[in-house]
Lab assay of single mutants.
Amino acid sequence: MDVCVRLALWLLWGLLLHQGQSLSHSHSEKATGTSSGANSEESTAAEFCRIDKPLCHSEDEKLSFEAVRNIHKLMDDDANGDVDVEESDEFLREDLNYHDPTVKHSTFHGEDKLISVEDLWKAWKSSEVYNWTVDEVVQWLITYVELPQYEETFRKLQLSGHAMPRLAVTNTTMTGTVLKMTDRSHRQKLQLKALDTVLFGPPLLTRHNHLKDFMLVVSIVIGVGGCWFAYIQNRYSKEHMKKMMKDLEGLHRAEQSLHDLQERLHKAQEEHRTVEVEKVHLEKKLRDEINLAKQEAQRLKELREGTENERSRQKYAEEELEQVREALRKAEKELESHSSWYAPEALQKWLQLTHEVEVQYYNIKKQNAEKQLLVAKEGAEKIKKKRNTLFGTFHVAHSSSLDDVDHKILTAKQALSEVTAALRERLHRWQQIEILCGFQIVNNPGIHSLVAALNIDPSWMGSTRPNPAHFIMTDDVDDMDEEIVSPLSMQSPSLQSSVRQRLTEPQHGLGS
C-alpha cells in the first residue's frame, strides 16, 4: 500500500516538474521574441530617421516606410540591400504576372540599375499617388481596383495617398480587421493593385479616363459626320452624273437629228437641180409651141386668103386666128415678164464666191463646235470609267472633274446653238437673194472655178474651204426642212400651169 502511494507521488512530482520546465521555456521564448521585435522596430526607426529625418517622428509615415521596406525586401531575393535588374524582372513576371514588363521595368529602374530602400522611398515620395486625397483614393478604388463596396470604409478611415504602401503589403490585420475584407480574392486584388500603384505611379486608366471618354465621343461624332458627308456627296454625285448623262444623251439625239437633216438637205439640193433642168426644158418647149402656133396661124391665113369662094369660112377662120394671136401675145408677155430682167453673169459669180467664202467661216465655227463636243464626250467617258472602280463615286464626288465636264457640255451646247442659228439665217438669206436675182447661188462650180473665172489672186482667199464634216446640232433644225426648197423651184409650177393653160385654150379652139 505504501509502495503505491509513493509511486503516485513520484509521478505527480515528475509531471509538475515537466510543466514548470515548459512554462519556463515558453517565457524565455516570449522574452526573446519581444526582444528581437523591439530590436527590429528600433532598426527600422533608425534607418527611417537617417533617410528622412523630418518625417521620422510621424507614426503614419513610419508605418508607410516600414511597408516600403517590406516591399523592397520582397523584391530583393539575395538580401544584399539592392534590387537589381534581374530581381525586378523576376518579381514583375512571377509576382505581378506581367508577361511583357518592358515598360514597367524601365519606369521602375530608370537609369539606376540598383534600387535601395532609400531610392524606393524617395521614388514613392515623388510619386503623384503620395499626394492623393481621400476622394482620389476612393476614385482609384472604384475605377481601377473595381471594389466600390468598400468606398464607405475607405472614407470612414480617411485613407489618403500616404496609406497606399500599407495596402500594398500582406497585412491580415489591416485588410481583415480594419478594412473588414472577408473575401480573400478581394484582399489579394487590392494588394496587387496597390503594389502596382506604389511602384509605377497612378494607372493610365485613372489619369486619362475623362480624356479617353472625350476622345471617344469626338471620334464618334467625327465618324458619324464623315459618313453623313460621304452619303450627301455620294447622292449629289449621282444626281449630277444623272443630269450629265441626260445632257449627253441629248447631244447624241441632236447628232442623229442633224445627220438626218444633212441627208434631207442634200436630197433637197438634188431636187432643186432637177427642177432647174426641168424649167429650162419647159421654157424651150414653150418657145417651140409658140413658134409652131405662129407657123400654123400663118399657114391657115395663107390658105384662107387663096380661097375666095369660102368667105364665110374665111371670116370665121380669121376670127379664130385673131383669138390665137391674142393668146400668143399674152403668152409672150407672160414669158417676157418672167425673163425680162437677167442679172449679169459676173454678178452671179461674185454672189456665188461670196456664198463660198461665208461657208468657209461657217465651217470653221462648226469645227470648233465639233472639237468642244469631242472634249465633252471624252470627259464623260472618263467619268463613266471612274464610277466603275471601287472608290470611283467617292473620288468623283470630291474632285472638280464632274463640274468641269458639266461646264464643257454646256459650252458645247451653246456653241451648237450658235451654229444652228447661223445655218438657219444663212439658208434663209441666200434663198431670198436667189428669189430676187432669179439664178442659182448655193449650187455653184466651187471656189476654185469661181476664183479662176473672176481672175482673182488665190492668195487673197487664204486656205481653201474644208470639206463639210458631220457635226452635231440641236433638234430645232428639224423645222428647217420646208425652207430648204429653192424659190426657183417653187415658181416653176405656177409658170408651167399659166403658160400651158393659155396655149391649150387656143389649140382647142383651132381643133374645133
Rank of each mutant, 00 (worst) to 15 (best):
L63C: 00
L63P: 00
L63W: 00
L63D: 05
L63F: 00
L63R: 00
S64K: 15
S64C: 01
S64P: 13
S64I: 06
F65Y: 09
F65N: 01
F65H: 06
F65P: 09
E66W: 06
E66N: 12
E66Q: 02
E66Y: 13
E66S: 05
A67W: 08
A67I: 13
A67T: 04
A67E: 02
A67Q: 07
V68N: 07
V68R: 03
V68W: 08
V68A: 01
R69S: 07
R69G: 07
R69W: 10
R69I: 03
I71M: 08
I71G: 03
I71V: 02
I71C: 08
H72D: 00
H72P: 06
H72F: 02
H72C: 11
H72S: 07
K73H: 07
K73T: 00
K73L: 06
K73F: 03
K73V: 05
L74K: 07
L74Y: 11
L74C: 04
M75G: 09
M75F: 15
M75S: 05
M75Y: 09
M75V: 04
M75A: 10
D76T: 15
D76I: 15
D76N: 13
D76C: 15
D77W: 07
D77T: 06
D77Y: 03
D77P: 10
D78S: 15
D78P: 13
D78C: 08
D78Y: 11
D78G: 13
D78A: 02
D78M: 11
D78I: 15
A79S: 03
A79M: 04
A79H: 05
A79P: 10
A79L: 04
A79V: 06
A79N: 07
A79C: 03
N80E: 10
N80C: 09
N80M: 11
G81Y: 15
G81K: 14
G81T: 15
G81D: 11
G81L: 11
D82P: 09
D82E: 12
D82V: 07
D82M: 10
V83C: 15
V83P: 15
V83A: 11
V83I: 07
V83K: 10
V83T: 14
V83F: 09
D84L: 11
D84M: 15
D84Y: 10
D84T: 09
D84K: 09
V85E: 02
V85W: 04
V85F: 05
V85T: 03
V85D: 04
E86R: 06
E86T: 10
E86N: 03
E86M: 15
E86P: 13
E87S: 11
E87L: 14
E87Q: 14
E87V: 09
E87P: 14
E87R: 11
E87T: 12
E87C: 12
E87Y: 10
S88R: 03
S88P: 09
S88Q: 14
S88Y: 04
S88H: 07
D89P: 09
D89V: 13
D89L: 05
D89M: 06
D89E: 02
E90C: 08
E90M: 02
F91Y: 09
F91S: 09
L92V: 01
R93C: 14
R93P: 12
R93F: 09
R93M: 02
R93D: 14
R93T: 05
E94I: 08
E94G: 08
D95L: 12
D95F: 08
D95Y: 10
D95P: 15
L96E: 09
L96M: 02
L96Y: 14
L96I: 08
N97R: 00
N97S: 01
N97W: 02
N97Y: 00
Y98I: 11
Y98L: 01
Y98S: 02
Y98D: 08
